[in-house]
């Protein structure tokens, strides 16, 4: 009986198969433009789900990776920057746009497909990836410990398709790989990010007494460094 149960278990394990949703197709269409508003020809547009990875503790969802996932649909932009293709459906899906070093992304929640299986977005702008360093430099000699907060167009935050519009995921926060306190030691003022550009970074930092200061920086190239003196 035990052998039979084990055999049954093995058969069940072997017969497990990844399944997508049955009896359904959606479609996606848009027009890709560069930062100057010109159409981008030959850009790869891929719709994928993310079923497999990111379950191991410490792993991180990177929306531009499509390894090990179902590709639900794909297309290449034409001379006019337009692309249109059928998509399989497996819950929500991520649309990745890439052309050379330019990219962008979009998340379509499953709920958005309930009433309309045709996702049509008038235009999407391709951006580039920038490594940005923001460093707080203590010029006043204060011993106070500050906290900081960043608003930026992170590569880890999706644009989301909601009710026909594309917005930046309001629930997404830049995943800092360090504490957001600084001035605890002499060399803890450096913060690094991967962001899309052209974009704007808004930095706010607060002193223990509750005084908040805010500064904005424009990101215009692939490697940029900003210094904030306090």
């Amino acid at each position: 009986m035990i052998r039979f149960t084990l055999l049954l278990l093995m058969i069940l394990i072997c017969s497990c198969e990844a399944r997508l949703e049955d009896d359904i197709r959606a479609s996606f269409s848009t027009r890709l433009l560069d930062i100057n508003g010109d159409p981008v020809q030959g850009a790869q547009v891929t719709a994928a789900n993310y079923n497999y990875v990111r379950t191991i503790s410490g792993s991180r969802l990177h929306k531009f990776s499509i390894d090990d996932d179902f590709i639900l649909g794909e297309g290449i932009t034409d001379d006019n920057g337009e692309v249109s293709f059928l998509m399989l459906v497996d819950g929500g899906c991520y649309i990745n746009f890439t052309e050379s070093d330019r990219l962008n992304n979009l998340f379509i929640p499953r709920s958005q497909l309930e009433n309309n299986l045709a996702v049509q977005i008038p235009e999407i702008r391709l951006k580039q990836l920038a490594n940005v360093q923001v460093e707080f430099v203590n010029t006043s000699g204060t011993n106070q410990i500050f906290t900081t907060d960043f608003k930026l167009e992170s590569v880890y935050c999706n644009r989301v398709y909601i009710d026909g519009e594309v917005i930046t995921d309001p629930g997404c926060e830049e995943p800092l790989n360090r504490s957001n306190f600084f001035n605890q030691s002499t060399d803890d003022g450096l913060f690094e990010f991967e962001v899309l550009f052209p974009s704007v970074i808004e930095v706010s930092y607060t002193s223990p007494s509750g005084v908040e200061m805010t500064q904005s920086f424009a990101v215009t190239q692939t490697n940029q460094r900003y210094e904030i003196q306090y």
């Binding site: 990844a18 997508l20 049955d22 399989l88």
Partner: peptide, 14 residues
Amino acid sequence: RLDSGNGGGKFRDA
């Protein structure tokens, strides 16, 4: 069926 390089997933049209 999707090919194995694309997850090998299955779904049905009935």
